[in-house]
Simulated scan of single mutants.
Amino acid sequence: MGEESHFMLPVNARPSLFAVGSIKRIVAAAVVVGVGAGVPVVAATAANAAPVKSAPVHSVQAAAPQAPAGYTVQSGDSLTKIATTHHVQGGWQKLYDLNKSVLTDGPDKIHPGQHLTLGGAAPAPAAASAKPAAATPVAAAAPVANTPAALQALAASIVPANQLASFDQIISHESGWNIHATNPSSGAYGLPQALPGNKMASAGSDWQNNPATQLKWALQYMNTVYGSPNAAWAFWQVHHAY
């Protein structure tokens, strides 16, 4: 490109910069425990049980234990101990309220053998869940590569298809598709070798490093001065500049 009148005229030869993771089953004895004094304990022993064939055992996940509907007081028990062990909602106070008809001596006097209603038991505390894995960071989108092929694809999205071949020829001869190409003699700059380079600021303040800005400016320049990239390429072939 040259003098201001043509915006760009031949100055010096433009640089051409080309780019590119057998279990046995045992029959247990049923144990019957009598509540009260003098009641004998009757138990069936394993020796008296009828033999059974071993059967294949399939591993299954054990269901969560269900809270018993009732509880028989044992020696050494207290309402607090029972409520805590069986996760009674409302604690020992609720347990006492549910069993006042049984605990006639008050909450502090309970006796082995007394059968207590547990009512609605709170679910057993769940094991602390594992700390959630940190989210995988999303990599920032990589900028468009400033290779000739990538820049030519960008030009195809800006320049009309019937003008693209001529536009490509001019940019190829002027800068070899190097967005930072600088003529050491005249100072012409960028893909279209604008002279001076800051003229491209009319298309965007990022003209020095944004290929889209440079390409938009080049298309505008060719349309304004020559009427189209086709006409600008025809001129270039005669004068080796535009």
Rank of each mutant, 00 (worst) to 15 (best):
V27A: 15
H115K: 15
Q89N: 09
I179H: 06
V33R: 14
N146Q: 05
V52E: 10
V238R: 15
N12A: 09
A28Y: 13
A49P: 03
A241P: 03
V73F: 14
T213W: 01
N146K: 01
V225C: 00
S175Q: 03
G190H: 01
A156K: 02
P143I: 13
S157H: 05
N223T: 11
D77M: 03
S101N: 10
T80M: 07
P229T: 03
L215C: 01
A50N: 13
F7E: 11
R14E: 11
T147L: 08
Q214S: 04
A134D: 07
T117E: 10
S202M: 08
Q193I: 00
V138K: 12
I82S: 04
G70Q: 15
P107V: 10
A83N: 05
A232K: 03
K53I: 14
V73I: 14
A49F: 07
H180Q: 11
G34K: 13
G70K: 15
G119V: 04
A43K: 14
Q163V: 07
N48S: 14
G204A: 00
A44C: 12
L98E: 06
A140F: 02
K109G: 09
S129M: 14
F167T: 00
P143D: 10
L116F: 08
R25D: 08
A141N: 02
L103F: 02
L17H: 11
L195Y: 10
T213N: 02
D97V: 09
V73G: 06
A69K: 15
A30C: 12
S78P: 07
A126V: 07
I82T: 04
A201R: 12
D206H: 03
P184W: 11
P184G: 08
A29W: 12
T80K: 10
A128C: 11
N230W: 09
L215A: 00
S185V: 15
G190E: 08
P123Y: 02
A37F: 05
V238D: 11
L151K: 00
A13E: 13
D77P: 01
V33A: 11
V31Y: 00
I23N: 10
S5I: 07
G106D: 13
V31N: 08
G113T: 04
T213K: 02
K216Q: 09
A165I: 06
G34P: 15
V144P: 01
G120C: 03
G119N: 03
D168S: 06
K53Y: 11
I170W: 07
S185I: 13
A64K: 13
A194L: 10
K131A: 07
E3K: 08
G197S: 12
A231G: 04
L9D: 08
A28E: 12
A201N: 14
